[in-house]
Design a protein around this nucleic acid. Structure first.
Lengths: 108, 108
DNA sequence: CATATTTATCGTAATTTTGCGATGAATAAA
DNA sequence: TTTATTCATCGCAAAATTACGATAAATATG
């Protein structure tokens, strides 16, 4: 890749791609499932459950934050993360709208 | 990265990540939107619409095929692709199930 | 048969992602 | 105040992704 072509696409396409990218690693899927399933969501608890080093988990959390799929707050020496349901709703909506346009074609 | 850690996660997490990865590039989002919107879906027509070289589009199509999000058939010298609606349904279902488990936590 | 069209694949280069250990920064605990 | 805990960030290395031109393979056309 010489030049970055991603900006040549529509803002909406880029946004959907960004959201999908945040989901595009099993570690991040697993993190999101953990956050979805528990009330408390301390970083250290996530690290315990995953087969990854603490620094790696921290990076994945950072990416999920960047995409807006989770939110985080600091509490003393601990960090608490949780699902951002609005972002997931938006994601779902974009997927739905995507499919609602689909023509029932028969070529394949 | 020295070793591949992806297989350390559940098959379901890996599967969702694979589907998301296929959506994780604006070019592939744009391709899918084109396929969704038109009856005919010849490769060359997609190439005309996208700001990418033919070989690059072909690669993106290959990835979408691999993930199962589209299907393709050869017709003479042309190739026809279209959305695989079953795969999208599965994707949507996995997303929904994902969210349905979410606890209404308040930590952030 | 010779040529054109269409698309997949190969080879290559640049960039991004992934993963970890080490370290730093901040708060808590002794 | 010293020490421990928790987590983010840095720096590095390996791997994967992205993009393109060139080319091959297959069919269609003259």
């Amino acid at each position: 890749m010489t030049t970055n072509k991603k900006t040549a696409f529509s803002a909406e396409d880029q946004e959907l791609a960004e959201l999908a990218k945040a989901l595009a690693h099993p570690a991040r899927v697993a993190i999101l499932k953990e956050l979805a399933a528990r009330r408390s969501c301390i970083c250290g608890e996530i690290v315990e459950v995953l087969p990854l080093a603490q620094s790696t988990v921290s990076q994945h959390l950072k990416e999920l934050l960047k995409a807006g799929l989770i939110r985080g707050t600091v509490e003393g020496t601990k960090s608490c993360y949780c699902i951002n349901q609005e972002a997931f709703s938006k994601f779902s909506r974009m997927m739905d709208e995507f499919l609602s346009v689909t023509i029932d074609n028969k070529c394949c």
